[in-house]
Deep mutational scan, measured.
Amino acid sequence: AEKTGIVNVSSSLNVREGASTSSKVIGSLSGNTKVTIVGEEGAFYKIEYKGSHGYVAKEYIKDIKDE
């Protein structure tokens, strides 16, 4: 049951290796980017990222929809 969301930041949002603010940053997404959410862990969504997965803070994702 995948969902999509939109990155809701003015600059960019860090994509992390794990569901923690201390996890390594593996990339970033600019505002209004559409993401595919494959799961959630605590305050983070697990998303599809560059052929693999990454984690982003839930508070910066809006317009969550079921695909």
Rank of each mutant, 00 (worst) to 15 (best):
K34L: 14
N8H: 13
S52W: 09
S10I: 14
F44S: 03
Y55C: 00
K34W: 07
K3C: 05
K50S: 09
G31L: 12
G39K: 04
A57R: 14
I47S: 00
K46Y: 08
I6A: 05
S10G: 11
N8W: 05
V38Q: 06
S11K: 11
V15W: 02
G51T: 09
T4W: 05
T33E: 10
E67D: 11
G5S: 04
S28K: 14
Y55I: 01
V7K: 02
E48S: 11
A19V: 06
N14V: 15
S20C: 06
S12T: 15
E40Q: 10
N8M: 12
N14E: 14
S22F: 07
K50W: 07
Y49I: 03
T4R: 09
N32K: 08
E40D: 08
S23Q: 04
G31Q: 11
E48D: 14
K46P: 00
V38I: 14
I47V: 06
S28E: 12
A1W: 09
S30H: 15
K62F: 11
L29I: 15
S10C: 09
F44H: 03
T21W: 12
I6R: 09
V25G: 03
K58S: 05
I37R: 01
Y45I: 05
Y60P: 02
I47K: 00
R16K: 07
E48T: 11
G31M: 14
K58I: 07
S11Q: 13
K65C: 06
G51D: 12
S22T: 14
G39M: 04
Y49W: 11
Y55A: 01
E2P: 14
I64Y: 10
S22I: 11
S20R: 06
G18Y: 12
G42L: 06
G39N: 05
K3W: 07
S30G: 13
A43K: 12
S52R: 10
T4V: 11
K62M: 12
Y45F: 12
S23E: 05
S22P: 03
V9A: 12
E48F: 08
G5C: 04
G51R: 07
S12R: 15
V25T: 07
N8I: 11
V7C: 04
D63P: 11
K62H: 12
V9T: 14
S28V: 12
S28F: 12
F44D: 04
Y49H: 05
G5V: 04
Y60H: 13
K24Q: 12
E17C: 06
E48H: 09
K24D: 06
E17D: 15
E48C: 08
I64D: 07
F44K: 01
G5P: 02
G18T: 14
E40G: 05
T33V: 09
A57G: 08
S11P: 11
I6D: 03
K58G: 02
A1R: 06
S12N: 12
I47R: 00
I26P: 00
I37W: 01
Y60E: 06
A1H: 11
V7E: 02
V15M: 02
S12Q: 12
I26W: 02
K46N: 03
K50E: 12
K3R: 12
G51M: 08
Y49Q: 01
K50F: 09
G42K: 06
S28Y: 13
V56C: 03
G54M: 03
Y55D: 00
Y60Q: 08
E40L: 06
K3F: 06
K34R: 14
V9N: 08
T4D: 05
V15L: 03
K24H: 09
H53V: 14
V56I: 10
E41I: 11
V56M: 02
I61W: 03
